[in-house]
Simulated scan of single mutants.
Amino acid sequence: MKVGLLTREYPPDVYGGAGVHVEFLARELRSLVDLDVHCWGEGGADGLLRHRAWPALDGANDALRTFSVDLSMAAALAGRDVVHSHTWYAHLAGHIGKLLHGIPHVMTSHSLEPLRPWKAEQLGGGYALSSWAERTAAETADAVIAVSGAMREDILACYPAIDPVKVHGVHNGIDTELYRPDHDTDVLERLGIDPRRPYVLFVGRITRQKGVPHLLRAARRLDRDVQLVLCAGAPDTPEIDAEFRTLFEELSRTRAGVQWIPEMLPRPQIVQLLTHAAVFACPSVYEPLGIVNLEAMACGAAVVASDVGGIPEVVADGTTGLLVPYEEKEPDRFEHDLGLLLNRLATDPERAAAMGTAGRYRAQREFGWGTVARRTVEVYEEILHADR
């Protein structure tokens, strides 16, 4: 079976959970199918083709530049039996590839544009285009893969024209050999983090979705001895960047031990930070699953996360971490409760350690990438047999 896998992110240019998903899924799929990966960028290698936006669109709206990459990807799919796209950045390529080459299209939905209205702040009128591309691909795809049960429900609610039979649940996964506890402290020391004091850790992009401003306000309730470490970069817009910087500076003036690491750290360094975190914080206001929580759990960190989307399918409340109810209309209450629970675990090392141990066990038992890849191939086979 010849499969074309379409994505914006691919190593070394991975900045979010969808990119992590594609990286590890592709690694496992190569032993099961004949795989070509199409991604953004320059150059390429055997089985990897990189595509760039048309130079004529330099400076144009990002959605238009994305569509030019999609056309390049679609043109390169000749000879494939199945096309599999990830995120709206590649879904239109999958749809056009299906029409152009007469092959079935599978799309994995990592998030949904109708549930991310703040993207209009980033894309302007391009948000209408990204929404159109996602809807068109979703409603015409031969199969849609949802990364959680909650995501499946959201897909069917947002796009009721889709036949529910076509929506398959396949969880994200985690490599528990790459993400495993690292008890060295050289990275902490180099970054100026005191290994003798507990710290709350955040890893993610500075976006409305990831809820970083909520975390900064919640951190006002942390005990004075608890540090806050933010591995946070790639702000969506100047506005969210400015809001983040203002809140960070305000918090830094009132307490010591507030650390911001704006650059994207290599995976081994993130692993060490996760290992030593008293608590990992995930304040997302929307999260179809949340690979980052799996990464934290695999490294033995207790998790405090918002009770949204697919997060409860990963974080077992009271066992591997604590969940905080989120209501858009009650941000103050969310921030109060988030700060309270973060502080509760950060100041109770025995309970946090027990949750971390339980989290690693759960990650190993239930979220292996080999299982994800095999289940994905079953979806390919099902739609290919349906066409015969």
Rank of each mutant, 00 (worst) to 15 (best):
R220H: 03
D175F: 13
Q227K: 02
M1K: 12
L100N: 07
C299Y: 09
D81S: 12
A296H: 02
E42T: 08
H86W: 12
L274F: 08
R135W: 06
P104S: 15
R365D: 15
P104W: 01
E189L: 08
M73A: 15
D223E: 12
R8C: 00
M297S: 04
V20T: 13
S85L: 13
L251F: 09
A316Q: 07
L342P: 00
T246C: 06
R360Q: 05
E330S: 13
R205S: 13
V304M: 07
H171G: 00
L341I: 11
A45V: 00
Y179V: 00
Y179A: 05
R388L: 15
V377I: 08
T185G: 06
D223R: 08
E328K: 00
A53F: 08
L274W: 03
E330A: 11
P235F: 11
M1T: 15
G79Y: 09
H183A: 01
K98A: 06
A141Y: 02
E249G: 03
R245Y: 05
E113A: 01
G300V: 05
V229R: 02
M73D: 00
A386Y: 04
A93M: 06
H168C: 09
V285E: 05
D70T: 14
D46I: 06
G79H: 09
V372D: 08
L48H: 14
G124Q: 02
A346L: 03
D154W: 00
E350K: 09
V170N: 10
V279T: 12
K98Y: 01
L191E: 13
C39P: 03
V187P: 12
A301Y: 02
K210W: 02
V212R: 00
K329T: 12
L294F: 14
V147W: 15
E42C: 04
L25S: 04
A137R: 00
A301P: 04
R197V: 06
G59R: 11
V22P: 00
P283R: 08
V37C: 05
V22H: 09
R27S: 13
G149K: 11
R224C: 14
P104Y: 10
E378R: 01
L216C: 15
G173I: 06
T371R: 05
R224M: 13
W88R: 03
A60W: 15
P288F: 14
A232E: 04
N61Y: 12
N293H: 05
P160D: 02
E113R: 15
Q259V: 14
L92V: 10
H183W: 14
A218D: 07
L273S: 03
E121P: 09
L247F: 00
A363S: 11
A161C: 05
V304R: 01
R205M: 13
T347L: 11
G356W: 06
V258S: 01
H21G: 14
L188A: 13
E9Q: 10
R360K: 10
A232M: 14
S31A: 15
G310T: 10
D70S: 11
N343M: 15
A74R: 07
F202M: 08
T87I: 05
L215Y: 07
P268E: 07
R52T: 06
E134F: 00
R8M: 06
S111N: 15
P331N: 02
G368W: 09
L77K: 07
P198D: 05
E263P: 01
I174W: 11
C299V: 13
G97E: 11
Y127N: 12
Y361T: 10
P349L: 05
L341G: 01
A218Q: 09
R375F: 03
V303R: 07
Y179S: 10
V20K: 03
